[in-house]
Design a protein around this nucleic acid. Structure first.
Lengths: 230, 230
DNA sequence: TGACAGAATATTGAATTCAGAATTCAATGC
DNA sequence: GCATTGAATTCTGAATTCAATATTCTGTCA
């Protein structure tokens, strides 16, 4: 994948052997990952003792991570009773997707205005890869590229605030179990939507790009929601 | 130990007792308030020792609060070098307002669809109060009602996710709002915009309501931005 | 004087300890 | 048998301690 741009951005100074970077941040990311990947199930209680053993750290950084994830809405902190992974009802999912659609719509608008030509070429290339992965029936690769495209559009806006707030909300619907199901119809439609978005961006049509992004997100929600009815 | 005596001596003012059951949350809120009110200036470094004395707590809950506020974008954590209050450049303000405008636009749409009749009556009443405060030239009251209206519209959407993410972003420009003055022209225009929004909500015109909210926010930013040029 | 090395000090990050609240579980009475 | 009480245990929240890093201070030498 074309990560060279991203990597360049995240390297301000040379030092920092990864292991040394703030333990609490590392724990926050790993714990978040565990939740997103479904290793920790919604409704499940966090076992501090177990996790500190797994991570090989004390409770202090773990608890800091928990506070952060709670602020992000991934955990519910119950006073004197611990933390539980937040449950996601369909209505909450609907809430999240409305907000996400608004943010990605804005991203579409801003990207059409602000993206560099290189950004657009990158997005176009990724979109071609996306179709290829669809034609190959390679789901893991498809999801990975799909995420990379959304990320690339966000990044191309140059709006750090948008990127960050999108990230903190998107986390909540990126849990692994939602990716498992993708009907063949929806898959094809999603690829076409992405191609339309790439075209709108190429044409620098902010309004259309924004509308397409919004629709894309709402369709995605509709598809997931459909599955969940089973 | 003798800590209580020491604290009593070194603590400038007698603070109200802190709710022990939610100390970390309490500290998070107080620290956030201090940043928003400008008691801690952008660019300023957090002095842990001083703050723990002021709050009468140990470093543990304070540091947890710092982590949360950093995740919210109010602080920058620099490894082994402490935390500094994030600066607000005009370009960052611009970023924030774009995002805020997108979120409030969504709030306008959703409120037009979802608000109860009681919600709408409440918003209409507040809008009338807003005009009154404008005619009275009562700025503090105007700001207070203005904020109440935005809050009421958000609340009327019933979308908790929207409310929370709006809140965390709005925090960041409330710092500017404390200082922001209001020209007489902008003041009148703002009142009229609010009346138009209330009318669109009353008509349950989601699209129009959303558009008006977006425009209102962007106008507000333009006004603040104008001031800052001086 | 001013630049530098290295010691002294202060600050940060994380582990450990301590206090208090919640949960478990056994004993008692009905 | 079942509910209730209260001690034992476990867990959570916060303070304290300890280790690592950064900063300041001081003395030396050019």
């Amino acid at each position: 994948m074309e990560n060279s741009q991203l990597e360049a951005m995240t390297t301000p100074v040379a030092h920092e052997p990864i292991n040394r970077t703030a333990l609490a941040v590392e724990i926050t990311n790993r714990l978040r990952q565990m939740i997103l990947e479904g290793q920790l199930q919604p409704g499940e209680k966090i076992n501090e003792k177990l996790l500190t053993r797994q991570f090989g750290v004390s409770r202090t950084p773990l608890r800091e991570a928990m506070k952060v994830l709670a602020a992000d809405g991934l955990l519910d902190l119950i006073p004197h009773r611990g933390a539980v992974i937040t449950r996601q009802s369909t209505s909450e999912m609907s809430e999240v997707f409305r907000v996400l659609a608004a943010l990605e719509s804005l991203a579409g608008e801003l990207a059409a205005e602000q993206a560099s030509d290189a950004d657009l070429r990158n997005i176009a290339a990724l979109t071609a890869d996306l179709r290829q992965s669809y034609q190959d029936g390679d789901r893991p690769r498809y999801f990975s590229i799909n995420q990379a495209i959304h990320q690339a559009i966000l990044t191309a806006t140059g709006n750090e605030t948008l990127i960050r707030s999108h990230e903190s909300i998107a986390f909540r619907v990126q849990r692994a179990r939602y990716q498992a199901n993708l009907t063949s119809d929806r898959w094809r439609a999603a690829v076409e939507e992405h191609e339309a978005i790439a075209a709108a961006l190429h044409a620098r049509d902010a309004q259309r790009s924004g509308q397409l992004m919004k629709a894309h997100l709402l369709h995605k929600f509709a598809a997931i929601n459909m599955q969940r009815q089973d």
